[in-house]
């Protein structure tokens, strides 16, 4: 035994023989569920948004540097590729925002039972897509 933590993973099977228990959660055998899927996407969105924060600081730095540097930054954001990337960031932002509220409510002790958890999960999906659509509607049509 290399690690003391392995001592917690020893058990006996039905015949009484000592066995090494598998590490849980065992992702390879779990069927994806709404709860676990939304959970991992919260993390993925958070990591992506960290990249977005880097882009935000570069955008602000371009504005602080010179009018021509900011013009380049704005034209990049206005290009097709730029818009696709920004669309992904708005979706990630609104998803992390909505699911973050869900997490804060859990921290406060609300919404732990399964039916509520599933309902709030779908509500998060609908809200984040809805907010993204509203944002791009205002940006492209109204603004």
């Amino acid at each position: 035994m290399q690690d003391v933590r392995e001592a917690f993973m020893q058990g006996r099977n039905s015949t009484g023989a000592m066995v090494q228990r598998p590490l849980s959660p065992h992702l390879q055998i779990y069927r994806p569920q709404i709860s676990s899927t939304l959970s991992i996407f919260h993390r993925i969105a958070g990591i992506a948004l960290s990249g977005g924060a880097v882009l935000l600081s570069l955008w602000l730095a371009a504005a602080a540097a010179s009018p021509s540097a900011f013009a380049v930054a704005q034209s990049l954001a206005d290009s097709i590729l730029g818009m696709i990337v920004l669309f992904g960031f708005t979706l990630a932002l609104f998803y992390h925002f909505c699911n973050g509220i869900r997490h804060l409510l859990w921290d406060a002790g609300y919404g732990y039972d399964l039916p509520t958890m599933h309902r709030t999960g779908y509500a998060v999906l609908i809200c984040s897509v809805g907010l993204t659509v509203i944002f791009w509607f205002i940006g492209l049509v109204v603004g």
């Binding site: 924060a53 880097v54 935000l56 600081s57 570069l58 602000l60 730095a61 504005a63 602080a64």
Partner: peptide, 9 residues
């Protein structure tokens, strides 16, 4: 990047 953003603002 935090300082870069703050200084730019």
């Amino acid at each position: 990047f935090g300082i870069l953003a703050a200084l730019s603002v």
